[in-house]
């Protein structure tokens, strides 16, 4: 029996996972766990000590991410992961602050916070798991649900146009913008690692299936969604944010679109507001 050989062996990410909370709540066929695994892999790949990281989530399925990473982690209120993370970052600029949350949390109820953190170039790594719906509450229409797609509150199809998230991020001032699907796990992990290691507001959209509450209503099994991620996507680094709407019929563009260097919010604040001697003193004490 093959599985007997694994007795006493451990998955390489177990030191970063709260194993006493596994199995997690994510459904069979849900992609959030895959995005989370890529994220943890990225954290590990940086070789930065774990206590120099913190993770903040909002509410929703993806918002449970913070509950499973074995570092100081925060599961906050709906939509408010970014301002919570901003408070941490401004008080402790040396920490690597990762925001792991969903599309509904970050872009509907939390949209205002997103655009302002991007505008300020707050040094955060924002990972948005985009499953096109409100999964936890049962599949209601979201700000990312495709036009005409069915949801529990749009039985006849979504009458609204969804956000183009990378365009929104770019227009708001994000200095790093990328998109992958959970199937592009290696690219995604490397992308998250790069985002962690750079300074500035980094936004990574990750398309991920919700088979139970989105797929079921739109006649799409989880492996069919993954097939679309495989067949109907094209990697085009540096693509213009204006051409990044999510339309699998036309083909969805993935890659790293924006990577600009710009002083971060905490850097500029320190330089402009802290008296010089104070800054030196702070550096010494760190």
């Amino acid at each position: 029996m093959k599985h007997d050989e694994t007795a006493g062996m451990a998955h390489p990410l177990e030191d970063l996972v709260r194993m006493d909370r596994i199995p997690h709540i994510w459904c069979p066929g849900c992609g959030i766990g895959s995005v989370f695994t890529s994220c943890l892999t990225a954290v590990k790949q940086t070789n930065i000590p774990y206590n120099q990281f913190t993770m903040v989530s909002g509410i929703g399925c993806s918002g449970r991410g913070a509950g499973y990473i074995n570092i100081d982690s925060f599961h906050t209120t709906h939509g408010r992961a970014i301002p919570f993370a901003s408070g941490i970052k401004m008080a402790r600029p040396d920490l690597n602050v990762i925001v792991f949350s969903g599309d509904g949390d970050l872009f509907a109820i939390g949209g205002n916070h997103f655009i302002h953190a991007a505008r300020r170039n707050m040094d955060l790594t924002v990972i948005c798991v985009n499953n096109l719906t409100y999964g936890m509450t049962g599949g209601q229409v979201a700000a990312t649900t495709p036009f005409k797609a069915r949801s529990s509150t749009t039985a006849l199809g979504n009458p609204d146009t969804p956000f183009n998230l990378p365009l929104l991020a770019y227009a708001s001032g994000a200095t790093y913008v990328a998109r992958w699907t959970m199937l592009h796990a290696r690219d995604l992990a490397d992308c998250i690692q790069e985002a962690i290691l750079r300074r500035g507001f980094s936004f990574i959209e990750v398309l991920s299936p919700c088979p139970i509450n989105y797929g079921r209503r739109n006649r799409e099994k989880t492996l069919e969604t993954l097939k679309k991620y495989h067949d109907n996507t094209i990697v085009k680094n540096g693509a213009s944010p204006t051409e990044l709407e999510v339309d699998f019929n036309k083909g969805v563009i993935l890659g790293k679109f924006i990577d600009i260097e710009k002083p971060t919010c905490d850097e500029v604040y320190r330089r402009m507001y802290r008296p010089p001697e104070e800054t030196t003193e702070n550096r010494k004490s760190r």
């Binding site: 998955h11 199995p23 849900c30 766990g33 695994t37 796990a185």
Partner: peptide, 13 residues
């Protein structure tokens, strides 16, 4: 390691 990275459950490596 692709299975390891893709598995949502930390169940394979």
């Amino acid at each position: 390691h692709y299975c390891e990275l893709l598995c949502p459950e930390f169940a394979i490596y």
